[in-house]
Design a protein around this nucleic acid. Structure first.
Length: 674
RNA sequence: GGGCGAGUAGCUCAAUCGGAUAGAGCACCGGCCUUCUAAGCCGGGGGUUGUGGGUUCGAUUCCCGCCUCGCCCA
């Protein structure tokens, strides 16, 4: 709702500027003043114009205000300070219109609706998911929810690198360290399943062991390196024992990853796999396009001699200019040593090359498709997996208009190269709708690492954080963290609500645990490194998920005791003169709740535009805080003035509606009691 | 060596295109459970925004130099 008022005001300001000074401004800055006493909305427009118009800002502000006249939704405009233009909303009108619910999509839509493809999680299927993967999956899943809330069609993909070196390492571990054949591996998998153990946990340790084994004995290092490489090549080629073991174990681990993520209400539509990208020869088609358009060229000299290379993203050199002396005669002469190798001189394609092919598919530009099989069943839908030969009636995947790749910031270089290749192929529209949704890693605090029993080097103990490493088996496993969170919340729920049934206590504890974890991963902006510590992650007080859930629970309690529902409370507001209770003595905190609640869709838009879910997390927290303040100042159930009581009850209702909505977008549900 | 990101309260983080008195949480200190749930609320102490310059009416924000840390590339 508030978004509509802002747009209205912006339009009127623009037209006032055109009429008064015959100027068009690029953007109109609208911000909230530091204190509501100044109004709800302000613009420093007059300051910017002062120089251009050779006039005092205050004078300009006065002229603009005079020219504005009345604007629907606003009660007054005034000039403040040296030249701020402050706007006061028509509070009663906003409250009345906001009491009527609107679907967020209908008002937040600022651009066209797109078919978007979000790829996230993408864990190598060779070990258990850890906290870093949780950040990825939670960010990605939350962004999916935001896009869907705004009305976009979204496909969720989880890319599986099942033929990479990490999987090869586990296969080496199984065949050489554990000395297992294919049948032996099948047996181990079923034994683990029978005893309730997690295959991904088993491989977590095995992976760390094999990594160590490669270099443990210098005399054997060369031979073991060869085993590793041979295994990798066998897996890539397919149709042999190593490939079968890889398929078996990576698929079992993949299922575990899906189960882990499902604990956090994270689901996928499709699992495209590296093996199909290889076996269906996606690269051949991409290679032909890249050569035809001159994006790739064959290097004939220098260190990349014999390779197919492309200009690196950000490089000023262009492919064609490389061979021709520059006009000034300096530079661009000789091979571009900085060029990115796409096909090595031995004919193998690099990871970036395969990624280009895959992204052409995502945009529907490759000219070939996967086959598909059903893989994992959710309550209300199916998750499909890529295949060489699949089922006949599958949904259509790929061919998206916009893509978002949730990948940590260490991958920004290869991501930039894929975008560069798309642009080089002439797909500029697609390149501009390709978002590397990057985020910083989750690292461990030295204290946390010591707590977990890892050796921490003396020089690392003073550092703020230490990078996790799957190869070293160093990190916090996702399921372990979720288990701990549930154990902690369950104990608390048991002591607070012994009257609830076992199932209810279970569901409540789980909701709170998920809320704590998801909020923890979302409260940090993307480019901030999270230094993980159990103390912070297991906290349920202050700026945490449970704090937000608690605010909802309080509103629920109010409606239970009032014998009404939020919907009824909002409907009952119709025709009530609420203006006397929205400003002045004794009304503190009431309007703040309405204003904050009204901004939810504004935040939805902002989060999508900036690909930053943290803003919504912060907004929801602030709404809960505003409600807590309101809750303290105004006792709703004992209110004697009927009109005022209706407004207070409606304020609780609108808080509940917007908090539940915001929490749902964050993937957090609010329990009935807690 | 090149590229990207970061440096804000004791700690962990915010701060919308450059805007009004730089905000939260944690920790610490002091209060509040016999009125709608204390996973809560109120109050308090805490800041030369790494550093030196520049641009501007106005800089945590933009530009340049330097220092420190992280990541990526070669």
């Amino acid at each position: 709702m508030y978004l509509a008022q802002q747009k209205q005001l912006e339009e009127r300001l623009r037209s006032a500027l055109r009429n008064l000074y015959h100027i068009d401004v690029e953007s109109v800055v609208l911000e909230q003043p530091p204190d509501l006493a100044f109004g709800e909305c302000a613009t420093p427009l007059a300051f910017e114009l002062a120089r251009k118009l050779r006039k005092a800002p205050r004078k300009i502000a006065e002229e603009i205000v005079a020219a504005l006249g009345t604007v629907p939704g606003f009660a007054a405009f005034e000039v403040a300070g040296a030249g701020y233009i402050n706007a006061r909303l028509d509070r009663a009108a906003l409250v009345q219109s906001y009491a009527i619910d609107l679907a967020p999509a209908s008002e937040s839509r600022s651009g066209q609706l797109l078919h978007a493809l979000v790829e996230h999680t993408s864990i190598n299927p060779n070990k258990a998911a850890h906290v870093g993967h949780l950040r990825n999956a939670i960010l990605g899943d939350t962004f999916v929810r935001l896009l869907r809330a705004a009305g976009h069609k979204v496909d969720v993909q989880n890319y599986i690198d099942n033929t990479g070196v990490q999987v090869a390492d586990v296969v080496v571990g199984l065949t050489h360290l554990e000395d297992l054949s294919l049948a032996g591996v099948e047996e181990v998998i079923s034994e683990l399943a029978d005893s309730g153990e997690r295959i991904d946990f088993y491989c977590w340790d095995l992976y760390a062991r094999v990594s160590q084994w490669y270099t443990a004995d210098p005399a054997q290092a060369e031979a073991r390196k060869k085993i590793r490489l041979d295994t990798l090549h066998a897996i890539e080629a397919g149709g042999n024992e190593s490939a079968h073991i890889a398929e078996l174990v990576s698929t079992a681990i993949l299922r575990r990853h899906l189960e882990t993520m499902l604990r956090l209400d994270i689901e996928y539509d499709l699992l495209p796999r590296e093996s199909e990208i290889l076996h269906l020869h996606f690269w051949d088609l991409a290679f032909a396009q890249l050569k035809a358009k001159g994006v790739l060229y064959f290097e004939t000299e220098g260190k990349n001699k014999g390779c197919w290379v492309m200009k690196r993203a950000g490089s000023t050199r262009t492919g064609d200019a490389l061979r021709d002396p520059d006009e000034n005669g300096d530079a661009a002469d000789g091979p571009d040593e900085d060029a990115k190798v796409i096909v090595r001189s031995n004919g193998t394609v690099t990871y970036v090359g395969k990624d280009i092919a895959y992204h052409l598919w995502k945009f529907g530009l490759l000219g070939r498709d996967f086959a598909y099989r059903r893989f994992f069943r959710y309550d209300d839908r199916e998750c499909w997996i890529s295949a060489e030969a699949g089922e006949p009636n599958h949904p259509h995947f790929g061919g998206a208009q916009a893509i978002y790749n949730v990948i940590d910031s260490r991958q920004s270089d290869p991501q930039a190269n894929v975008i560069e290749a798309l642009r080089g192929l002439g797909y500029t529209e697609q390149a501009s709708r390709y978002t590397h949704f990057s985020y910083e890693m989750v690292a461990l605090t030295p204290r946390c690492a010591l707590e977990l029993g890892y050796d921490v080097l003396e020089e690392d103990r003073a550092r703020p954080y230490i990078e996790v490493s799957g190869r070293k088996g160093f990190g916090v496993k996702a399921d372990d963290l979720i288990d701990k969170l549930i154990a902690a919340t369950r104990a608390e729920v048991d002591s607070r609500h012994p009257e609830l049934s076992e199932a209810e206590r279970d569901a409540t504890a789980r909701a709170i645990a998920v809320g704590a974890l998801r909020y923890f991963m979302l409260r940090y902006t993307r480019n901030s490194v999270i230094a993980f510590d159990f103390k912070d992650a297991l906290s349920f007080e202050g700026e945490t998920g449970p704090y937000l859930q608690y605010a909802v629970v309080r509103t629920r309690s109010i409606f239970r005791k009032a014998g009404t529902t939020p919907e009824e409370a909002l409907t009952a507001l119709e025709g009530v003169d609420v203006a006397p209770y929205l400003s002045g003595e004794g009304t503190e905190g009431i309007w703040e709740v309405w204003l904050r609640a009204a901004k939810t869709t504004l935040l939805l838009d902002q989060c999508i535009q900036t690909a930053e879910p943290a803003y919504l997390a912060k907004h929801a927290f602030q709404l809960a805080q505003d409600f807590s303040n309101f809750y303290r100042l105004h006792h709703i159930l004992s209110e004697e003035n009927p009109a005022r009581k209706k407004l207070l009850l409606a304020a609780a209702a609108v808080t509940q509606r917007e908090l539940i909505r915001s929490l749902a977008w964050l993937g957090i549900s609010a329990p009935e009691v807690m």
